[in-house]
Amino acid sequence: MNYTIDNNSINILKNISFEVDYKETISIVGESGSGKTSLIMLIGGLEKISAGNIFFKDSEISNMTEDEISEIRRKNIGIVFQSFYLIPNYTALENVSLSLEINKLDNATQKAKEILDRFGLSNRFNNLPSQLSGGEQQRVAIARSVVMKPELILADEPTGNLDSENTENISNLLFNYIKDENASLIMVTHDNNLANLTKRKITIKDGVISENQ
């Protein structure tokens, strides 16, 4: 696949092609501006590719409308951001239960409590994001992204805004969860230690895959 912006004047990604297996964990590394984040945006259906195809299981998401992609993302893809992006006027519990509620699942609040409890936030249910530490905010954000038990988790520098202690906690949390729930992970990171935890590492340089091992 290819990805260009500004009316084809800038080629962000060129001839990118790879597959992600079921339960596989992949890290995407590379220098700033190499196209790592663009790649997971495209995989998550948040941007449109310029040429080529992207398949999620048997469905080609690159041809889908925004609503169709939203439907897939809602049920099957969880996204973790570097800056957490919790909804500021929602409590931790409400941020997590939001995904369950829009999928009209029963006992949304109970399920959200269970996942927050699992992530060690049982005493933070009713706190607003502004009342949480950075590490806690990211745990809530991960809880939100995995509460629907998605088959694929996309993470963009999930520990980029955290100190070393929180980095370790968050990475343990994320990888344990993925292992327990049999999900796949595609993670963009600059952190070699974190990248080494994944099964495969893809290096991108100037918009092309330079290494895939």
Partner: peptide, 9 residues
């Protein structure tokens, strides 16, 4: 943007 990211169109 978050709402869109988690699948609300």
């Amino acid at each position: 943007a978050v709402q869109k990211a988690i699948g609300i169109n």
